[in-house]
Simulated assay, not measured.
Amino acid sequence: MPLPFLTADRASEAADDVALPFEDRERWRRPYRPGPWRVAVAALSLLIASYVLLAAVVIALTGSPSEAGTVFGLSLLVIAAALRLLRMGVWVSERGLRHVRFLVTRTVTWNQVASVRTVQQPVRWLGLPRTLQGQALTLVRRDGSPQDAVPLLTTHGADFLGRIEAFDRAADTVEAWADEYRQP
């Protein structure tokens, strides 16, 4: 049985010698795969949402429609949160860099970017208040805005915890996009 997702992975591995292997550079794309922690939490959320949907059906059959609607709305909220969690990360295109967080999305055009670089600094472990020494991919704007305090990617985030090589590849790819498209 053909597995198309495996051939896509092999094609991207074969194109590793090219810094920017994408042909359609106008589309927003994440230059790395979501990490196992992020996917596991989203899968668990979707599993919980399926049970809540089943509860909504049972309530609709036995109880009042307003209660069923409330539970159904709760399940839709959990599904939307899981999908947003999977969408979080850094996205690039020829127009700029987009940093998608859970509630906020910020887009910076390449002409506003002074540099994108990897630095050694204290980083948050899985987004929690605890900090560890690690690496972070940071964005430095030309105007020096205070939004630079939030790192784009970290070695201890949900995408790269325990996957240092994946962080290095993703950081190098984002830096390559920045080097190609930002104006000196």
Rank of each mutant, 00 (worst) to 15 (best):
A15T: 08
L6I: 15
E13Q: 14
P36D: 00
R30I: 01
E23M: 13
A56G: 11
P36V: 04
A19E: 14
I59C: 07
F22V: 12
A60E: 03
L6W: 15
D24M: 06
R33A: 12
A56P: 10
A19I: 09
T7M: 15
D24N: 13
R38M: 08
D24R: 11
L47K: 01
P31H: 10
Y32L: 09
W37Q: 08
V41D: 01
A11C: 12
F22D: 11
I59N: 03
D17T: 12
V18A: 15
I48D: 02
E26F: 12
R33Q: 09
A15C: 11
R27S: 10
P34D: 04
V41W: 06
T7R: 15
V57A: 08
R33D: 07
L53Q: 05
A14V: 12
E13L: 15
D9E: 10
L47N: 01
A11P: 12
E13I: 11
R10K: 09
D16G: 12
D16C: 11
A14N: 11
A56I: 04
A55Q: 06
A40G: 09
V58A: 07
V39A: 07
W28F: 10
L6M: 15
V57K: 03
L47D: 00
F22K: 09
V39K: 05
I59S: 05
P36H: 08
A8W: 13
L46G: 02
E13R: 15
L44W: 09
R27F: 10
L20F: 07
W37D: 04
P36G: 05
A15S: 13
V58E: 04
F22P: 00
L6A: 15
A14I: 10
A15R: 15
W28T: 02
S50G: 12
A8S: 14
L46F: 04
D24L: 11
L47P: 05
V18K: 14
E26L: 14
R27A: 13
Y32D: 03
R30K: 11
A49K: 00
Y51R: 03
F22I: 08
A8P: 10
I48G: 05
A11W: 14
A42D: 00
A43D: 02
D24I: 03
V39R: 09
R27E: 05
L53D: 02
V58W: 07
A15G: 12
I48F: 07
A60T: 01
A14R: 15
A11S: 13
R33W: 09
W37F: 14
A14D: 12
P21S: 06
R38L: 10
W37Y: 13
A15M: 11
A49E: 00
A42P: 00
L47C: 10
P34R: 11
A43I: 03
A56E: 02
L53K: 04
T7A: 15
R33N: 06
R25T: 09
L20S: 08
A60K: 04
R38G: 00
V58K: 04
V57C: 02
L44Y: 04
A40E: 01
T7K: 15
Y51E: 01
G35C: 04
A60R: 07
